[in-house]
Design a protein around this nucleic acid. Structure first.
Length: 498
RNA sequence: GCCCCCAUCGUCUAGCGGUCAGGACGGCACCCUUUCAAGGUACAAACAGGGGUUCGACUCCCCUUGGGGGCACCA
């Protein structure tokens, strides 16, 4: 008889196994990323399996949202709920017979037993344990019920099926990242495998499915580490090979502590809406909690090439929004201009006021894209940067607070300067950035003002704000008529306000 | 309360017995400059503490401290 091939030596088959309880948050998604990368890196298979064994927590539409999240990030799967595969179905609620077969066998072999304790009784037990300062956990009252009696009571009493954990000895689980983890069996209680509604608990379901689906590596959050020995015991009791366990750390909120909605712990889809690029989020999530030498910016292809799941950090990492934003900017700047312009245009459809005609004029976007591409971190940054291109008149600029020193308290002189600029601009034959700059520098010279001071005034007048894309290029896009009008209007407004 | 895991700059990390402890984000300063960015250059910034092991510990072991997680008919 030849020994079965150990999981670590078989072609990699890994899975992402979410519950349909809402949109997966980024911590969860990071596990999907790592798992997917490992599959791609090893030429293995990436599987999606829906763990919907808790009827009470189901959130309608979750599955589609989960799959959409994966698709948006480009994490495609070879087997899954939507496309099936050789080990389907990939939805646990459709696999009940498999779980029942497992418990039947365990029951017959005396490795599991029916428990008739009511929720109230269990509650009372827990309260007692707490009062007496004893560790909580099922104490095995129903473990001693004779099989015949158990069989009989099962006909008319509700029950769950518990795994009979060996009382003696200890169990050692080999974790890929940490090595052996040992716990004393007496600290493990007889956990529930099958609920009274006939659905399995996670403990049973994943052991059955990971075996049936020939999963080689169980990648999951390290909140599962403490119960991994139970799972190991279950694999053993069923006579199945234990896969390789890989328990990966969680993500912490910026201030420390658990990542919550407050701290920007959004779902992947929310990052999409906020204007992040999938490749940037993928890169960022992958490198928080994992590192590769001195490299920070790593493309999808590079990640696939260098990622090794064994290099994942064992300690929890803090979510660094600033770094994510920076990375997003890097990816934006790397993008070819036409593609970037199209992205901007589509985003503008969402962000620009409704009175701007749709579809957004692509030619215009193409014109200002080179002016703003280095000034955008998130797609949501675009609209406030370019809105003045779309306004027929610009809001009265808050001139006073931006006035150069020489004009403070002398707003009239600022108005004069603007007036002079308007006249020269009006006379300017060519509305290209270069001539415009030359003209305004000449104006400044003539009225004995600093060029920068005058530029600031004109910027305020033309765009309505102090921070804008490059002035002369922007003016060329806005056009001669509107620009001169805006400068004149601003001069008048300043005069009126003094 | 019991059990398990973790610990390098503020943050993410490289290091895998002998390094000036490296990189990135962020910070600060300067350069560039019509604003803001982008870019360039420089600087500040870490091995939690205590014991061992060793010729030699960031690296290996133990304790303390700190952080995280688990102890459901939830996953």
């Amino acid at each position: 008889m030849t020994a079965p091939t150990p999981p670590a030596a078989r072609p990699v088959r890994v899975r992402y196994a979410p519950s349909p309880t809402g949109d997966p948050h980024v911590g969860n998604i990071r596990q999907a990323i790592w798992t997917w990368l490992y599959a791609r890196h090893t030429g293995g298979t990436f599987i999606v399996r829906l763990e919907d064994t808790d009827q009470t927590r189901m959130v309608p539409g979750s599955l589609e949202r989960i799959l959409d999240s994966l698709r948006w990030l480009g994490l495609f799967w070879e087997e899954g709920p939507d496309i099936g595969g050789p080990h389907g179905p990939y939805v646990q609620s459709q696999r009940l017979p498999l779980y029942h077969a497992a418990t039947d066998r365990l029951l017959a072999e005396g490795k599991a037993y029916r428990c008739f304790c009511t929720p109230e009784e269990l509650d009372a037990m827990r309260r007692r344990q707490q009062e007496e300062k004893r560790p909580p956990g099922y104490e095995g009252r129903c473990r001693v019920i004779p099989p015949a009696e158990s069989e009989a009571r099962a006909q008319y009493e509700p029950f769950v099926i518990r795994f009979a954990v060996p009382r003696e000895g200890s169990t050692t689980v080999e974790d890929l990242l940490r090595g052996p983890v040992t716990v004393e069996n007496r600290t493990l209680d007889d956990f529930v495998m099958l609920k009274s509604d006939g659905f399995p608990t996670y403990h049973l379901a994943h052991v059955v499915d990971d075996t049936d689906m020939e999963i080689t590596h169980i990648t999951r959050g390290d909140e599962w580490l403490p119960s991994a020995p139970r799972h190991a015991l279950l694999f053993d009791a069923l006579g199945w090979q234990r896969p390789v366990f890989v328990h990966m750390p969680i993500i912490l909120a910026p201030g420390g502590g658990k990542l919550s909605k407050r701290h920007g712990a959004k779902s992947a889809l929310e990052y999409a809406e906020a204007g992040y690029l999938p490749d940037a989020l993928l890169n960022f999530l992958c490198i928080t909690g994992w590192g590769h030498g001195d490299d920070t910016v790593l493309s999808r292809e590079q990640l696939i090439e260098v990622f090794d799941i064994g290099d994942v950090s064992m300690s929890p990492a803090t979510f660094d929004t600033e770094k994510l934003n920076w990375l997003n900017g890097v990816y934006l700047r790397q993008m070819p201009e036409p593609e970037l312009a199209e992205l901007f245009a589509r985003r503008l459809e969402l962000d620009l006021p409704p009175d701007v005609p749709r579809p957004i004029d692509r030619a215009l976007v193409l014109e200002f894209t080179p002016l703003i591409r280095e000034r955008v971190q998130l797609l949501a940054d675009v609209a406030p940067l370019v809105d003045f291109f779309y306004q027929s008149e610009v809001p009265t600029p808050p001139v006073e607070q931006f006035l150069a020193k020489r004009w403070r308290g002398h707003a009239g002189e600022a108005a004069d300067a603007l007036e002079a600029a308007a006249a020269d601009l009006d006379a300017c034959a060519e509305w290209e950035a270069e001539p415009l700059e030359a003209a305004l520098r000449a104006t400044a010279d003539r009225i004995q003002a600093k060029a920068g001071d005058l530029f600031t005034l004109v910027r305020l007048a033309v765009t309505g704000k102090a921070v804008t894309p490059p002035l002369f290029e922007s003016m060329a896009i806005v056009g001669a008529g509107p620009c001169v009008d805006r400068v004149r209007a601003a001069a008048a407004a300043i005069r009126a306000s003094t």
